[in-house]
């Protein structure tokens, strides 16, 4: 991870990341996980998200049919596990394609201007 001058770069970096939180969630949740666990996983992967953003987002994605959820009461503390639905998996494909396209397009722009 590279760090940009915090004051000037933080806003733009944050803006860029905001759009990728959904994709990061959907990709990670190909394996079932619960809110706090997902937050930890994302954070370890260098993708820190605030709880107050992530937890409502999971609910929203579930409402949109991209995630399914199930309470797991086997352990001492009941946890609500989320995982991607078939529609969510299709959304991952769409977003991944878009991500690659953008990456290619941005790189191509960069190369054209440096030449």
């Amino acid at each position: 991870m590279s760090y940009v001058d915090e004051d000037r770069g933080a806003g733009h970096v944050q803006e860029l990341r905001r759009g990728t939180v959904v994709l990061a969630c959907l990709v990670t949740l190909s394996e079932p996980n619960y809110g706090y666990g997902l937050l930890e996983t994302l954070s370890e992967a260098g993708f820190s998200v605030d709880g107050n953003t992530l937890y409502p987002l999971l609910r929203r994605l579930e409402k949109q049919g991209l995630l399914t959820s199930e309470w797991n009461t086997d352990e001492s503390r009941p946890r609500k596990f989320y995982r991607v639905s078939p529609a969510g998996a299709a959304m991952v494909d769409t977003l991944m394609t878009e991500w690659t396209t953008l990456d290619t397009a941005i790189r191509a722009l960069g190369e054209r201007t440096t030449q």
Partner: peptide, 20 residues
Amino acid sequence: DTGPDVARELRGTIDETVEG
């Protein structure tokens, strides 16, 4: 229909964060 479920999940999340 969502309130109690959100409450249960949020409480669990807070408890786990605190324990962490």
